[in-house]
């Protein structure tokens, strides 16, 4: 139970929220912590709501589900609407501001990252937005080691897309975000 941190990543199918969760979990393991990742998504591969949950702890992780999360990454408006009530008071909310128009009135530290915009502009492919978000998450929270996350990306994506993914990660690490 010690230092148990719960993260929820929401988006629609195709935005890579499952992969983002896997990479984050791996990075925590590279840091020598315990980590656990689960995922749920609709029957359709693309378009339906997808969710990935990560739990990171110094101790043993028992119950594998997230009840109230410490950090919420919302990749689109629908996911934000679906999950903001699960965010702890004064938790961290990071939204992909390219896909989120209105943020509900909640007590949270809120960060707006135009991840999809960055991905489109820099790589011509919006599907790197998930990795931009991971970069922003790492910078904002120091949840995992910068190097561990990079290593986890190297370990998780194909050689063909590795360069773009690493660039997306660095963009996320260095991008300015509105709070």
């Amino acid at each position: 139970m010690q230092n148990r941190i719960e993260i929820k990543i929401g988006g629609h199918g195709g935005q890579g929220v499952v992969l983002a969760g896997q990479i984050l979990g791996k990075a925590a393991v590279f840091d020598g912590k315990n980590a656990l990742q689960t995922q749920t998504y609709g029957a359709e591969a693309r378009g339906s709501l997808a969710r990935s949950e990560v739990i990171i702890s110094d101790g043993k992780i028992g119950f594998p589900a997230v009840r109230k999360c410490d950090i919420l990454l919302a990749m689109n408006q629908k996911s934000l609407d679906a999950h903001f009530k699960n965010l702890k008071e004064n938790g961290v909310l990071i939204v992909d501001s390219s896909n989120v128009e209105s943020i509900p009135e909640i007590k949270a530290r809120i960060f707006r990252v135009p991840a999809t915009e960055i991905a489109r502009k820099e790589f011509g492919e919006i599907l790197y937005a998930n990795i931009v978000m991971l970069g922003a998450l790492t910078r904002i929270t120091n949840l995992v080691n910068k190097e561990s996350l990079e290593k986890a990306i190297r370990d998780s994506v194909s050689e063909r897309t590795l360069g773009a993914n690493l660039n997306a990660y660095r963009k996320g690490l260095h991008t300015k975000f509105e709070t």
Partner: peptide, 9 residues
Amino acid sequence: ETIAHLREQ
């Protein structure tokens, strides 16, 4: 399903 789909070290 839970244990089968869980990712852990």
